[in-house]
Write a protein that binds this DNA or RNA. Structure first.
Lengths: 226, 226
DNA sequence: TTCATAGTTCGATGTTAACCGAAGCATTAT
DNA sequence: ATAATGCTTCGGTTAACATCGAACTATGAA
């Protein structure tokens, strides 16, 4: 018989400050080396190695060896979803202890969540896609409509290339700042990529923040009205 | 160090097996007393009190005093959402991990939960009652069928005596082993009492463990096939 | 009042796990 | 080859915390 819910195990993995810092650093979607993650968490390399082994065993992160470097990233979007959901709760209740640096407003506005767009803009995009009838269905059964396919093609997104059997095309992800859903899945990834390709916005280095240009913001609002 | 977002704190709260068991028990939505939660987690009341104080301080549960009872429930929907998300992930990556402290294997097998049978045997009994069509309905509307009444009478349980207006006759109780229910309510109480009366099993003194005799186990399996 | 039940608090104990120094691999550079 | 870098593993120490017994508070019942 199974023991208590493995949710305890998952919780304890996230429950360590060092590991939590690593995981939040990885929500940027970038692959980071063990040394970089050790720096993020403020611990030595040996300790980080131990933590990363545990995170890997717990299927929270994925390791990719390249030469003498070990690159880590979040295992999948579900992990990102768990982290985001927890950050949502933590941000709401721990308002006292959350350091509100200058970065925060920008992050709330638009940021990378794993590999798709989150924040106010992410929520707006998701809502707009729903309101215009481009995507339909509930959280579980989210699908693209005919009009949606047309819309995306017009935006320059190649839907054929997105047809992976493994990852779902459409998926919603709960946002921590807005407590609303935003678009994840391969479509979410493709949309963010296209936004960056079209130079509507650029990604800030060393941050999860996404900053829109004047004209880029205008285009974005045109494409995704509320 | 920058103590990261309180996601670590949240994780560590959920990360303890006892607390995780309590939280999953509360996902049923029902308000449970400290004693009931202690029984579910397989710990003493003192320990449970300590855990519940921490969960309350962390805004994960809400306490409502009523007379000499303290009723606990999840603080809000967001907490339930966090738990659900984590359970979703944990379920997918099944039992691939070493979990901490089985505490007492005997407790896992069969134990008293408040006043009814829990553990493997409790789950089996509940499943069997459902499979044989003796009880029907969902978690909210759980009722005894005609065949069920007959079955219980044959076991020597006096249904008339159980007709209390105060407590529900049938009630399911979420087990440690997340997601599986066992029989609670007055019927659950009566069933355990009868098992002890028939000497199928005895209750260990100073413990919540229930130990079945060889023949008692046989009878139990006959009455409650899977 | 006296007793019983439900829960909290305190103190002591035992287990766990995070942490880092040092040594051991593995890969790349010189 | 030899050195240097990136990471892992081993060992021992330290700090945190889950656990339970015992004592205490509070509400309800006899």
């Amino acid at each position: 018989m199974k023991d208590g819910p493995n949710i305890a195990l998952l919780g304890s993995l996230i429950g360590d400050p060092a590991r939590a810092n690593m995981l939040t650093a990885l929500t940027s979607g970038k692959a980071l080396t063990a040394s970089e993650l050790a720096g993020e968490a403020g611990i030595t390399l040996q300790t980080a190695s131990s933590h990363l082994a545990k995170l890997e065993a717990g299927a929270l992160v994925h390791r990719r060896k390249q030469g003498r470097h070990h690159y880590f990233c979040l295992a999948d979007e579900e992990v990102a979803s768990v982290i985001e959901t927890m950050m949502g709760f933590a941000a709401k209740h721990g308002a006292l202890r959350t350091r509100t640096g200058p970065k925060d407003p920008a992050l709330r506005k638009a940021r990378v969540c794993y590999n798709h767009l989150a924040g106010e803009y992410g929520v707006r995009m998701f809502d707009s896609l729903c309101a215009q009838g481009y995507v339909k269905g509930s959280a579980k059964t989210l699908g693209l409509t005919g009009a949606g396919q047309e819309f995306l093609a017009e935006m320059g997104i190649d839907l054929q290339a997105l047809a992976t059997p493994r990852r779902p095309l459409c998926k919603s992800c709960l946002d921590w700042s807005a407590r609303r859903s935003h678009m994840a899945g391969t479509l979410g990834t493709a949309l963010l990529a296209q936004i960056l390709t079209l130079k509507w916005a650029i990604r800030q280095p060393d941050s999860r923040a996404i900053t829109f240009s004047r004209t880029g913001e205008k285009r974005f609002f045109e494409h995704f009205p509320v």
